[in-house]
């Protein structure tokens, strides 16, 4: 019997330890949608895809730095999840389960791609120019002052792609998407200590690579 284990429904928002909040009464829970989808209800599965597509896509995009690859991998992830839905026992939340599938797919993809870096970056949204963190970074008298945001974006993505896959994933999930260490541990199937040490090492690597832009 699958136990009730629900997640927040606001797509695109940073996923934190608050993931397990209940849904509002008028929206169906993940569990009920999963049960329907297990009986081949594609409308229910469509709702699940809409619920998590932005977070899954964002993770895959940050891992690959390529929109087309992230698009393919996101589709593949949801297709594979649907076909494996019968094996979903509810031991973890649907969100964590889908995330694991996405991560496995991405790791395999990156292994096949090896070191052939082919970036296809998304445009920055309008809010980037007004982000206080970024404004302070750009306005200071450093080498990055002469850089536009787009160039800074490219340097950042290049530095991220130099990290190993597990380190890049930890940085993406924690520093970019805001997931808690425990949640990342569940997704990566490792303990919190490993998550913390990988995060520490990954940040050090990034600081070394981007030292010119962090002075």
């Amino acid at each position: 019997m699958i136990t009730e284990n629900v997640s927040i429904t606001i797509p695109g928002q940073a996923a934190t330890s608050q993931l397990e909040k209940p849904h509002p009464t008028d929206t169906p829970s993940d569990l009920s949608l999963v049960n329907k989808a297990q009986n081949e209800d594609l409308a229910a599965y469509d709702e699940l895809v809409r619920r998590y597509q932005e977070r899954i896509y964002a993770t895959l995009y940050h891992m690959t730095s390529n929109h087309e690859d992230a698009n393919d991998l996101t589709q593949e992830t949801f297709i594979k999840a649907y076909r494996a839905l019968k094996s979903f026992k509810g031991d973890s939340s649907f969100y964590t389960w889908v995330y694991r599938i996405a991560v496995n797919k991405t790791i395999n993809f990156l292994k096949q791609r090896k070191n052939k870096l082919n970036m296809s970056l998304n445009d920055l949204d309008f809010n980037a120019e007004h982000d206080p963190d970024l404004v302070s970074l750009i306005s200071e008298k450093t080498p990055r002052r002469s850089l536009g945001l787009a160039e800074l974006q490219e340097k950042l993505n290049e530095a991220l792609q130099k990290l190993s896959e597990p380190h890049r994933l930890v940085v993406t999930l924690h520093d970019v998407q805001g997931l808690a260490h425990e949640e990342i541990g569940k997704i990566m199937n490792c303990n919190v200590g490993t998550v913390r040490s990988r995060l520490f090492y990954a940040r050090q690597q990034l600081q070394a690579t981007l030292s010119d832009y962090l002075k």
């Binding site: 445009d123 920055l124 982000d131 800074l152 950042l156």
Partner: peptide
């Protein structure tokens, strides 16, 4: 702060 830039990358 620099990593915050990643949050602003949006698909078409």
């Amino acid at each position: 702060s620099l990593l915050a830039l990643k949050k602003h990358e949006q698909p078409p």
